[in-house]
């Protein structure tokens, strides 16, 4: 759904970096460079960014079943 607040493996806070990351990647910057500049060093945290798909934007328009 939304980008995780923390890295699943090491627990480092990463949620605050998502919007800048995706903005810059969409502008055409290489993901590796953006992650380096954001200070995301470990590969556990880096895969969180690389593998995330923001499906919340689509789910948002469907009614909740509960």
């Amino acid at each position: 759904m939304l980008f995780p607040v923390r890295c699943f493996t090491c627990g480092a806070p990463i949620g605050h970096l998502w919007e800048e990351y995706i903005k810059r990647v969409k502008q055409g910057e290489p993901p590796a460079k953006v992650l380096d500049e954001l200070g995301v060093k470990r590969y556990c945290c880096r895969r969180m960014f690389l593998s995330h798909v923001e499906i919340a934007d689509e789910v948002l328009h469907f009614p909740k079943v509960s």
Binding site: L2, F3, V5, P13, G15, H16, W18, E19, A56, D57, L60, H61
Partner: peptide, 24 residues
């Protein structure tokens, strides 16, 4: 996270821009 209004100004989110939810 910055939208959370804390009762103590010493205890507030470290990062302001963690997305918590989205609304339409």
């Amino acid at each position: 996270s910055r939208d959370l209004a804390s009762s103590d100004s010493d205890v507030k989110p470290v990062f302001d821009n963690i997305p918590l939810a989205k609304l339409v």
